[in-house]
Design a protein around this nucleic acid. Sequence first.
DNA 1: ACTAAATTGAACCCATGAGTTCAAGTTGGT
DNA 2: ACCAACTTGAACTCATGGGTTCAATTTAGT
Lengths: 208, 208
Amino acid sequence: MDKRQAILDAAFEVFARCGYGQACVKEVAEVAGVAKPTVYNHLHDKETLFRHAVTAAAEGIAERTISALDALRDPAGDLRETLGQVTRELAASCCDERAQALRRLTYGETAQFPDVLESVHARTALDLREVLADRLARLVVAGRLRPCEPGEAAGHLLALITGPLDARSRMGTRAVPPAEVERVAESAADVWWRAYGAPAGPAARWGS
Amino acid sequence: MDKRQAILDAAFEVFARCGYGQACVKEVAEVAGVAKPTVYNHLHDKETLFRHAVTAAAEGIAERTISALDALRDPAGDLRETLGQVTRELAASCCDERAQALRRLTYGETAQFPDVLESVHARTALDLREVLADRLARLVVAGRLRPCEPGEAAGHLLALITGPLDARSRMGTRAVPPAEVERVAESAADVWWRAYGAPAGPAARWGS
DNA sequence: ACTAAATTGAACCCATGAGTTCAAGTTGGT
DNA sequence: ACCAACTTGAACTCATGGGTTCAATTTAGT
């Protein structure tokens, strides 16, 4: 029963539902099951309330999303199969309600909170991209992927997943049926694999 | 000197700069060079002001973006070359300040204006995708692209362009140097072409 | 049990900004 | 020139909501 955490959770929920401008602190307090002065006791401002709530939520979301990449660490069997699995997991976490709300909030409140956009983006996008790039680099070195710039390849895979999904879900406004999420993920993996997968045949032998 | 248009332009500028919640009608009036009651005379509400300003801006932006696809209508020379050119143009219009502001606004104000998000998305994303899909379908039929689902292929190309650019520009917060925009566009075209381009050789001969 | 800190609810203050009113002035068509 | 419609600025109303105050109460550590 950490009140502070309850407040931060409630704040994220309310901000996500109403946007920063329309959200009112009283409602945050009610959702948190706490009195209004208690909110101000922990977080001095509405602004700091927003900042802390959003960055805390971003931390959790980033952690879970990045953990989807674990399967690419030392992939034993068919690489294409592992890629498909990872892609499906990334697609699923991209459709997560909190993740979508987080994107809406940070994008929308850019005018007032450019720094929040910056730090959230660093944690949820750049870090994700870097970790994925690390995995891809190992696979390139091992000759299991075509030679490429790993960061670029990582960006492309993520774009192929999130782009079509954001388009279909209208930034989280519409629910995308799980079957379609899978289809989108599969076709993203397909396209990426055609561009970056090692051609069939024994081993690495693509010269200069 | 159409006052109404001046008001709509000013409104988009102010909303883009401050967000809906923080924007005030007085400032819109000042930017438009008009008195406050005149604003209310043309657009009854702050809400309708927002709706009209945003959808009007979306119309203009969508039109210009879609016109970038004209080069794919009956492409004479090297298709890969034309693809590169179109991709560069799409990348440029994706980095346009107004376009980015439009995305920030619609995404951010989703909570209050889900219908605006819907209509803007329909015009700027779905229409673009459909027109591009039309072009691609013709090219597939002509044997100049690998057989594929045109809508899906269109979505992939757009994702490969906008995804990396949004990541680099932080939703329009950071200026991306034109040289890097070109690089991103070029690599997007590369990847897409590897997945969807017709393999070298005389003509279409990929069986079932 | 005792004390210090945290919590509560309720009332309160106050800045902000949406939207209105109105009398005076401007525009534009005939 | 004339009239109707539109525009203007300034003052005004009013609802909303951020933030504070405070006395009463609960909680938690010892």
